[in-house]
Amino acid sequence: MDETGKELVLALYDYQEKSPREVTMKKGDILTLLNSTNKDWWKVEVKITVNGKTYERQGAVPAAYVKKL
């Protein structure tokens, strides 16, 4: 869990989004888990830093590609 009490997951593999509802992640990324009720796809929040600014993006990733921490 992070400092706000939200559950975290670890990306076990790289994943490139294939639709606007998904998010890209790299192996080793730590993501915030938002919903894991679907056994195949979990909704997560990814933090992306671009030019020193951090953005948050929500989307789905394959459940088999992440592990709860």
Rank of each mutant, 00 (worst) to 15 (best):
K39T: 10
G5R: 14
N51L: 08
Q58Y: 07
Y55V: 11
G28Y: 05
K47R: 12
K68T: 06
L34N: 01
V44P: 00
K68Y: 08
V66S: 00
E45T: 10
G59S: 02
A64D: 10
G5V: 12
K67V: 15
D40H: 14
Y55T: 10
E17M: 11
E17Q: 13
A11I: 04
N38T: 06
G59F: 09
E45N: 07
V46G: 04
T24Y: 03
L33E: 00
V23P: 01
K53M: 13
L34E: 01
K6H: 12
S19E: 06
E22I: 04
Y65W: 06
I48Y: 13
Y55F: 12
Y65D: 02
V23T: 04
T4D: 12
V61A: 02
V23E: 00
T32K: 12
E22W: 05
D2M: 14
V46I: 14
R57W: 06
V46F: 07
S36V: 06
M25N: 01
V44G: 00
S36T: 09
K18V: 08
V9Y: 05
G5A: 13
D29I: 04
K6T: 11
Y13H: 10
W42K: 00
V66G: 00
V66E: 01
W42P: 00
E45W: 06
S36M: 10
Y55W: 09
R21W: 15
Q16C: 13
R21V: 10
R21A: 14
D40S: 11
S19A: 07
T49Y: 11
L8R: 11
E3Q: 14
N38W: 05
R57G: 03
P20G: 09
S19M: 05
V50G: 05
Y15V: 01
T49F: 11
N38V: 04
E22L: 05
V50P: 00
G59M: 09
E45P: 00
N51V: 04
V61Y: 02
V44W: 02
K26G: 03
K43T: 15
A60K: 13
V23Y: 03
L8T: 07
M1L: 13
T37S: 14
A63T: 05
D14F: 04
L10M: 14
K26S: 07
K43C: 15
L33V: 05
K53L: 13
A64V: 09
E45L: 14
W42C: 05
T37A: 12
K6G: 10
E45M: 14
S19I: 03
Y65N: 04
L8W: 14
G52Y: 04
Q16S: 10
I48Q: 07
M1V: 13
D29S: 06
T24R: 06
K26I: 06
K67P: 02
R57I: 08
S36L: 04
D29R: 03
N38L: 07
K47F: 09
Q16W: 11
A11K: 01
K53Y: 12
K39C: 12
Y55R: 07
A64E: 09
